[in-house]
Protein backbone atom coordinates (compact mmCIF):
# COMPACT_ATOMS: atom_id res chain seq x y z
CA UNK A 1 0.00 0.00 0.00
CA UNK A 2 2.49 2.60 1.17
CA UNK A 3 6.18 1.88 0.98
CA UNK A 4 8.87 4.34 2.00
CA UNK A 5 12.40 3.39 1.09
CA UNK A 6 15.55 5.23 2.25
CA UNK A 7 13.89 8.63 2.23
CA UNK A 8 15.72 11.69 3.51
CA UNK A 9 15.07 15.38 3.08
CA UNK A 10 17.48 18.23 3.30
CA UNK A 11 16.53 21.66 4.63
CA UNK A 12 18.69 24.54 3.62
CA UNK A 13 22.37 23.72 3.39
CA UNK A 14 22.95 21.40 6.33
CA UNK A 15 19.87 20.15 8.16
CA UNK A 16 18.84 16.71 6.95
CA UNK A 17 16.12 14.44 8.26
CA UNK A 18 16.32 10.76 7.45
CA UNK A 19 13.22 8.62 7.69
CA UNK A 20 13.24 4.94 8.54
CA UNK A 21 11.74 2.66 5.92
CA UNK A 22 8.03 2.10 6.40
CA UNK A 23 5.59 -0.39 5.01
CA UNK A 24 1.84 0.15 5.43
CA UNK A 25 -0.63 -2.48 4.24
CA UNK A 26 -4.13 -2.05 2.93
CA UNK A 27 -6.76 -1.11 5.49
CA UNK A 28 -4.33 -0.66 8.37
CA UNK A 29 -4.66 2.16 10.85
CA UNK A 30 -1.40 3.80 11.85
CA UNK A 31 -0.25 6.38 14.30
CA UNK A 32 2.61 8.63 13.20
CA UNK A 33 4.08 9.82 16.46
CA UNK A 34 6.55 12.65 16.90
CA UNK A 35 7.17 15.93 18.71
CA UNK A 36 6.84 19.15 16.77
CA UNK A 37 10.03 19.73 14.84
CA UNK A 38 10.65 16.00 14.48
CA UNK A 39 9.80 16.11 10.78
CA UNK A 40 6.24 14.88 11.12
CA UNK A 41 4.73 17.44 8.77
CA UNK A 42 7.63 16.97 6.37
CA UNK A 43 6.96 13.25 6.17
CA UNK A 44 3.25 13.82 5.67
CA UNK A 45 3.93 16.25 2.83
CA UNK A 46 6.34 13.80 1.27
CA UNK A 47 3.73 11.06 1.58
CA UNK A 48 1.03 13.13 -0.06
CA UNK A 49 3.11 14.28 -2.97
CA UNK A 50 3.34 17.88 -1.80
CA UNK A 51 7.07 17.86 -1.16
CA UNK A 52 9.62 15.98 -3.20
CA UNK A 53 12.23 14.41 -0.88
CA UNK A 54 15.91 14.95 -1.61
CA UNK A 55 16.49 11.20 -1.71
CA UNK A 56 14.54 7.97 -1.69
CA UNK A 57 11.28 6.76 -3.18
CA UNK A 58 7.65 6.60 -2.10
CA UNK A 59 5.27 4.05 -3.51
CA UNK A 60 1.56 4.35 -3.06
CA UNK A 61 -0.55 1.60 -4.62
CA UNK A 62 2.60 0.52 -6.47
CA UNK A 63 2.93 3.96 -8.04
CA UNK A 64 6.27 5.63 -7.50
CA UNK A 65 4.65 9.01 -7.12
CA UNK A 66 7.64 11.31 -7.61
CA UNK A 67 8.29 9.86 -11.05
CA UNK A 68 4.99 11.41 -12.14
CA UNK A 69 4.68 14.89 -13.60
CA UNK A 70 3.59 17.69 -11.27
CA UNK A 71 0.14 17.68 -12.80
CA UNK A 72 -0.20 13.89 -12.50
CA UNK A 73 0.87 13.98 -8.85
CA UNK A 74 -1.85 16.57 -8.14
CA UNK A 75 -4.41 14.38 -9.83
CA UNK A 76 -3.17 11.24 -8.09
CA UNK A 77 -3.46 12.99 -4.75
CA UNK A 78 -6.95 14.20 -5.53
CA UNK A 79 -8.15 10.73 -6.43
CA UNK A 80 -6.29 8.50 -3.96
CA UNK A 81 -5.36 10.54 -0.91
CA UNK A 82 -7.67 12.33 1.50
CA UNK A 83 -6.03 14.87 3.82
CA UNK A 84 -7.39 16.34 7.04
CA UNK A 85 -5.53 19.28 8.51
CA UNK A 86 -5.30 20.45 12.08
CA UNK A 87 -7.43 23.49 11.40
CA UNK A 88 -10.54 22.77 9.39
CA UNK A 89 -10.38 24.98 6.31
CA UNK A 90 -13.08 25.27 3.69
CA UNK A 91 -13.45 27.66 0.75
CA UNK A 92 -15.50 30.48 2.24
CA UNK A 93 -17.19 31.60 -0.95
CA UNK A 94 -18.72 28.16 -1.49
CA UNK A 95 -21.35 26.36 0.60
CA UNK A 96 -20.81 22.88 2.07
CA UNK A 97 -22.15 20.95 -0.91
CA UNK A 98 -20.14 23.13 -3.32
CA UNK A 99 -17.00 22.57 -1.25
CA UNK A 100 -17.50 18.84 -1.67
CA UNK A 101 -18.29 19.17 -5.39
CA UNK A 102 -15.03 21.12 -5.67
CA UNK A 103 -13.15 18.12 -4.24
CA UNK A 104 -14.76 15.88 -6.86
CA UNK A 105 -14.03 18.34 -9.67
CA UNK A 106 -10.39 18.94 -8.80
CA UNK A 107 -9.79 15.19 -8.55
CA UNK A 108 -10.99 14.97 -12.13
CA UNK A 109 -14.19 13.13 -11.21
CA UNK A 110 -17.74 13.95 -12.20
CA UNK A 111 -20.08 15.60 -9.74
CA UNK A 112 -21.93 12.98 -7.70
CA UNK A 113 -24.57 14.53 -5.45
CA UNK A 114 -25.73 11.14 -4.18
CA UNK A 115 -22.26 10.43 -2.87
CA UNK A 116 -22.18 13.87 -1.19
CA UNK A 117 -25.51 13.27 0.54
CA UNK A 118 -24.31 9.85 1.64
CA UNK A 119 -21.05 11.13 3.14
CA UNK A 120 -22.71 14.10 4.85
CA UNK A 121 -25.35 11.79 6.30
CA UNK A 122 -22.71 9.40 7.62
CA UNK A 123 -21.13 12.34 9.46
CA UNK A 124 -24.49 13.62 10.64
CA UNK A 125 -24.08 16.85 8.64
CA UNK A 126 -26.78 16.38 5.98
CA UNK A 127 -28.86 19.21 7.44
CA UNK A 128 -26.02 21.70 6.80
CA UNK A 129 -25.45 20.89 3.15
CA UNK A 130 -26.50 24.35 1.97
CA UNK A 131 -24.84 26.28 4.78
CA UNK A 132 -21.72 28.41 4.25
CA UNK A 133 -18.53 27.67 6.23
CA UNK A 134 -18.85 30.77 8.43
CA UNK A 135 -22.23 29.52 9.69
CA UNK A 136 -20.70 26.34 11.13
CA UNK A 137 -19.01 25.67 14.47
CA UNK A 138 -15.41 24.41 14.68
CA UNK A 139 -16.63 20.88 15.37
CA UNK A 140 -19.00 20.97 12.40
CA UNK A 141 -16.25 22.33 10.16
CA UNK A 142 -14.01 19.47 11.28
CA UNK A 143 -16.69 17.01 10.20
CA UNK A 144 -17.05 18.64 6.82
CA UNK A 145 -13.29 18.50 6.24
CA UNK A 146 -13.43 14.78 7.06
CA UNK A 147 -16.30 14.48 4.57
CA UNK A 148 -14.18 16.29 1.97
CA UNK A 149 -11.25 13.95 2.63
CA UNK A 150 -13.29 10.78 2.08
CA UNK A 151 -15.62 12.04 -0.67
CA UNK A 152 -13.60 10.43 -3.47
CA UNK A 153 -13.17 7.12 -1.59
CA UNK A 154 -9.41 7.54 -1.20
CA UNK A 155 -7.19 4.56 -0.59
CA UNK A 156 -5.20 6.58 1.91
CA UNK A 157 -6.61 8.89 4.55
CA UNK A 158 -4.12 11.16 6.28
CA UNK A 159 -4.85 13.35 9.30
CA UNK A 160 -2.34 15.91 10.54
CA UNK A 161 -2.81 16.68 14.27
CA UNK A 162 -6.60 16.34 14.08
CA UNK A 163 -7.04 16.45 17.84
CA UNK A 164 -4.44 18.86 19.16
CA UNK A 165 -6.79 21.82 19.56
CA UNK A 166 -9.70 19.80 20.92
CA UNK A 167 -10.69 18.86 24.48
CA UNK A 168 -10.64 15.22 25.57
CA UNK A 169 -14.24 14.50 24.70
CA UNK A 170 -14.07 16.01 21.22
CA UNK A 171 -10.64 14.53 20.53
CA UNK A 172 -12.08 11.11 21.23
CA UNK A 173 -15.08 11.78 19.03
CA UNK A 174 -12.97 12.96 16.08
CA UNK A 175 -10.70 9.98 16.39
CA UNK A 176 -13.69 7.66 16.43
CA UNK A 177 -15.04 9.41 13.32
CA UNK A 178 -11.73 9.03 11.49
CA UNK A 179 -11.50 5.33 12.27
CA UNK A 180 -15.14 4.83 11.39
CA UNK A 181 -14.84 6.71 8.11
CA UNK A 182 -11.65 4.97 7.07
CA UNK A 183 -13.33 1.61 7.66
CA UNK A 184 -16.51 2.73 5.92
CA UNK A 185 -14.55 3.84 2.86
CA UNK A 186 -11.99 1.04 3.07
CA UNK A 187 -9.15 3.51 3.35
CA UNK A 188 -5.81 3.09 5.05
CA UNK A 189 -5.56 5.59 7.89
CA UNK A 190 -2.48 7.47 9.05
CA UNK A 191 -2.90 9.88 11.95
CA UNK A 192 0.09 12.11 12.68
CA UNK A 193 0.19 13.54 16.17
CA UNK A 194 2.18 14.40 19.25
CA UNK A 195 -0.99 14.03 21.29
CA UNK A 196 -0.48 11.31 23.93
CA UNK A 197 -4.24 10.85 24.31
CA UNK A 198 -4.42 9.33 20.86
CA UNK A 199 -1.80 6.67 21.50
CA UNK A 200 -4.03 4.01 22.97
CA UNK A 201 -6.44 4.01 20.05
CA UNK A 202 -3.87 2.51 17.67
CA UNK A 203 -1.87 -0.69 17.63
CA UNK A 204 0.48 0.31 14.85
CA UNK A 205 2.87 3.16 15.47
CA UNK A 206 5.61 4.76 13.41
CA UNK A 207 7.71 6.72 15.86
CA UNK A 208 9.83 9.60 14.60
CA UNK A 209 11.62 10.36 17.85
Amino acid sequence: MIAIKSVSHQYGAEQTITFADWQVNNGEQWLLLGQSGSGKTTLLHILTGLLKPTRGEIKINDTNIYTLSSKKIDQFRGQHIGIIFQKPHLIKSLNITENLILAQTFAGLTTNKVRIEEVLASLDMAHKKNAYPQELSQGQLQRVTIARAVINKPTLLIADEPTSSLDDKNAEAVLALLKEQSELNQATLVVATHDKRVKDAFNLTYDLS
Binding site: L50, K71, R77, G78, H89, I91, L102, A107, R148
Partner: peptide, 16 residues
Protein backbone atom coordinates in the same frame (compact mmCIF):
# COMPACT_ATOMS: atom_id res chain seq x y z
CA UNK B 1 -2.97 31.40 -0.25
CA UNK B 2 -4.27 28.76 2.14
CA UNK B 3 -7.42 28.30 0.03
CA UNK B 4 -5.28 27.78 -3.01
CA UNK B 5 -3.04 25.32 -1.15
CA UNK B 6 -6.13 23.36 -0.10
CA UNK B 7 -7.26 23.32 -3.73
CA UNK B 8 -3.90 21.82 -4.65
CA UNK B 9 -4.28 19.11 -2.01
CA UNK B 10 -7.67 18.33 -3.52
CA UNK B 11 -6.01 17.63 -6.84
CA UNK B 12 -6.02 20.99 -8.63
CA UNK B 13 -2.86 21.47 -10.69
CA UNK B 14 -0.69 24.59 -10.75
CA UNK B 15 -2.05 25.40 -14.19
CA UNK B 16 -5.59 25.16 -12.86
Amino acid sequence: SYDLAIMRTLGASKGK
